[in-house]
């Protein structure tokens, strides 16, 4: 999945994030519309929508007759419920790819890689009841990175933190050594809009779904998680800035709405 998205978003990697989010949102809107059409009972939906229109018309025609208006409103409510019921299955089908797409977009467009000179917080959490000081965690950085602070170990939180600085662009290694083992993790310091993995945990099903492609912490280690704080990223739309999530939702829904008339989807 990560590889597939890397492939289709490759043309936008070199600083064309806004174009990338527009492209993927339009594509998502179109695919979702297609899926909706495929998995929904279009005939039944058409009937329900026609009914709703008819009840509205009824309300306008008999607006002097209170009992008729109330009856129409009740019918509109019932018809709306029927429409929602009909939409339930397609929504349940669509939610899976939408979540997968959003996970991929989150990896690429929620955080920016570091620029040379930028610093980032490295936050290491140990397993419960492990003494962070006795665990003796040390952080080593390879070329392209430097340690910008000594460790700050907080036993009450089971946490050890460092500040690192990027000295040259690229993806560089950061090594954490502890009494229970070592792990090498990537630090993203490039201008390309590639997946930026910021949280590393031990392998699990939820990690495989929600943090796909991220390097895993070895099970034998007493480290529960490692987080590298990257600068957050948003998109400039001229008059306002929006996160990738709002940009994606607005564009994909707007485009889906436009296509719905073209492809006559109920």
């Amino acid at each position: 999945m990560t590889g597939f998205f890397t492939l289709i978003l490759r043309p936008f990697e070199n600083g064309y994030g806004t174009a990338g989010i527009v492209f993927i949102s339009i594509l998502t809107g179109a695919v979702m519309l297609f899926l909706f059409k495929l998995t929904s009972n279009q005939e039944a939906m058409k009937v329900v929508k026609t009914k709703i229109s008819a009840y509205f018309l009824e309300m306008r025609l008999y607006k002097e007759d209170i009992s008729a208006v109330v009856g129409s409103q009740k019918s509109i409510l019932v018809a709306n419920m029927q429409y929602m019921k009909l939409a339930l299955i397609p929504a349940a089908v669509m939610i899976v790819p939408v979540i997968l797409i959003m996970i991929q977009l989150n990896l690429r467009y929620s955080q920016a890689g570091l620029q040379p000179g930028d610093t980032a917080l490295v936050k290491v959490k140990v397993e419960e009841e492990v003494d962070v000081i006795r665990e003796g965690i040390t952080l080593n950085v390879g070329s392209g990175l430097e340690k910008a602070s000594p460790a700050v170990r907080i036993p009450s939180l089971g946490e050890a933190d460092w500040k690192i600085r990027l000295t040259e662009a690229g993806i560089h290694d950061l090594t954490l050594k502890s009494a229970s083992g070592d792990v090498v993790l990537p630090v993203f310091g490039n201008e390309k809009l590639v997946p930026v993995f910021s949280i590393f945990k031990k392998g699990s099903i939820s990690e495989s779904i929600f943090n796909p492609g991220a390097k895993r912490i070895p099970d034998a280690m007493q480290i529960a998680s490692v987080e590298i704080r990257y600068p957050s990223m948003d998109f400039n739309w001229g008059l306002f800035r929006l996160s990738w999530l709002w940009s994606f939702l607005i564009i994909s829904m707007a485009f889906g709405f436009i296509l719905k008339f073209i492809f006559k989807v109920e």
């Binding site: 936050k123 602070s149 460790a151 700050v152 170990r153 907080i154 500040k163 704080r229």
Partner: peptide, 22 residues
């Protein structure tokens, strides 16, 4: 502010910002 027991550094937490200062 969390101070490391040995090293000359601290972590500052204010709102949702966490930062390390030597």
């Amino acid at each position: 502010v969390y101070v490391d027991p040995d090293y000359p550094a601290a972590k500052i937490e204010v709102m949702d910002t966490e930062l390390i200062l030597s």
